[in-house]
Amino acid sequence: MKRRSWLGWGTAGLVALWSAVGVSLGAVVRFLTPSVFYEPPQSFKIGNPADFSFGPPTFLAEEKIFVFRDREKGFAVASAVCTHLGCTVGYFQDDQRFHCPCHGSVFAGDGAVQHGPAPRPLEWFEVTLARDGQLRVDKDHVVPAAYRLMV
């Protein structure tokens, strides 16, 4: 075999080998990424408006949300997941603020960070009225803190 053709085939071989390694690594990452997530839907119904009382918010444990109902302003839904590292915050009626037990973040009643390491305010989710009269929350739609649904 000639030196020139040997070098050519050798380079082609090396390129092919490294491409194969690259493609395989990509395949491994893709394999580890599930194609289907068997997780609860991001948009769900939480019940009839009449089920929710005025005053302190209702905490829905499964969905990790607080449902606020106000006589004048209507419905608003806040996320209970701390924006720092994902612990579940609690709403304290006495100071009307959210407190995170993990690293001490404190959020104001509108979700704004007042204290601690949380980098962003708590999220507020879109709440709408479904056709059957139930409230529907969509976690994929983050809305401003001022968002309200009047029923």
Binding site: F59, E62, C87, T88, P101, H103, G104, G116, P117, P119
Partner: peptide
């Protein structure tokens, strides 16, 4: 999943890291 213990502490060997994280998640 609904109830975070208070305080929620990692095992002792990660508490130095948790202390750092309690100041800033990205930096610590």
């Amino acid at each position: 999943p609904a109830k975070t213990p208070n305080p929620a502490k990692a095992p002792w060997y990660f508490l130095g890291l948790q202390e750092l994280v309690s100041h800033s998640a990205l930096l610590g």
